[in-house]
Computed example of a mutant assay.
Amino acid sequence: MDKQTLGITVCREKALKKIPPFYEAPYFLQLAQEGKKWGIEVFVFVPMDINWRERTVSGWTVQSHATWVKATKPLPSLIYDRCYYSNQKQFNEYQPYIKRLRTDPQIHLLGTPLKGKLQTFDILKRNDNLHPYLPPTILYQSAKEVFLFLEKYRGALVKPNGGSHGRGVAAILPQSTGYQIRGRDQMNRPMSRHIKSKEELTSWLNSFINHSRYLVQPYLSLYTPDRRPFDIRILIQKNEQMQWEITGMAVRTGKPQSITSNLHGGGEAVSIQTFLETHYSRQDIASILSQLTRISQQVPQTIEAYHGNLVELGLDIGIDQHGRIWILEVNSKPGRTIFIKTGELELRERAVQLPIRYAHALLEQ
């Protein structure tokens, strides 16, 4: 067993016509360069390529000139799961392989991936201190749930239980002439349409959701004064002392009249200090930062208590037009692009260093 190798699992992306054939290669290259300082080799592989009889695996490693080369190596004892699933079919395809890695007694996964959004919210609800920050969330079973939310709130939001990057998220807003629908389809394309009746809305929901696992939440007014949607991304990671720390915070703003601020959907990034100073008073900023810090301390501990070991989390936080703070999403495989886009390269560098330092601490054990 190779004790000084950090394995990274990825999904095989057949559509990519480049070498190496997986997403996040620039991030993994930075991990490899950081790993060299600690005597750790980074080895990227697809779980399906493991030879369990010989406990070897074919994958990719980085040569000295920052080029990726194919190799076959002993199956690493320490593995960082960065598989991103583009749809439910791909998720189902990979799960038996990920489960085998997770249950192998000779393998330590850096963190157990979170399940769906609803399961994560159910865990967070067990912490009374987090209750004020959790929007009401139920599983979509029929259009009936949406109509209940439309009666109780100013609008409803439907989103996939396991989706990412804003795909398949839609806001449903009542109007005097029916319902306005705005959001992004399953291909992450902007959509907007007007529906005249309950019957037509029911038919649209059945077609849009199409037996997928979806959630219903109130539609929250998470906008700047000029009607740009925004949210705050907080990156929390374990350090070499195996303690949680807040690596950084940044703000994503979407296009005017959009309902999502995701960077994959055309959003922009700005430093949190710049954003807050533009839109809030000094007193409000102090209160917001205090609450964000408190949430960032409570969420990882709560999830680990009921879910199991984690290495990092991305929190998406919203602030509505009344100044109330909401936890929108928790992601166990957060990206780091936002810190490049804000120009905060020292935060990006820290975000790369911590997984390697945490891995090194585990290998030393």
Rank of each mutant, 00 (worst) to 15 (best):
4 Q>Y: 12
11 C>L: 15
22 F>T: 12
23 Y>T: 15
24 E>S: 09
44 V>R: 02
49 D>G: 03
57 V>I: 04
59 G>N: 06
70 K>M: 13
77 S>G: 13
77 S>A: 14
82 R>Q: 15
88 Q>T: 13
90 Q>T: 04
100 R>C: 02
111 G>A: 04
119 Q>F: 07
122 D>S: 11
125 K>R: 13
128 D>W: 00
128 D>R: 01
135 P>N: 08
139 L>S: 04
142 S>M: 11
146 V>Q: 10
146 V>T: 12
148 L>Y: 08
155 G>F: 12
170 A>L: 04
172 I>T: 04
173 L>K: 13
177 T>N: 01
184 R>D: 11
197 S>R: 11
200 E>W: 01
203 S>R: 05
216 V>L: 12
218 P>S: 00
219 Y>I: 00
227 R>C: 11
228 R>D: 14
228 R>H: 15
230 F>V: 07
237 Q>G: 04
244 W>Q: 01
245 E>C: 15
247 T>M: 03
253 T>L: 13
265 G>Q: 04
272 I>Q: 04
274 T>W: 12
278 T>W: 11
281 S>R: 02
282 R>D: 14
283 Q>T: 11
286 A>H: 13
288 I>S: 05
290 S>Q: 03
297 Q>R: 10
315 L>Q: 01
318 G>V: 05
319 I>F: 03
332 S>L: 07
337 T>R: 13
347 L>V: 01
356 I>D: 00
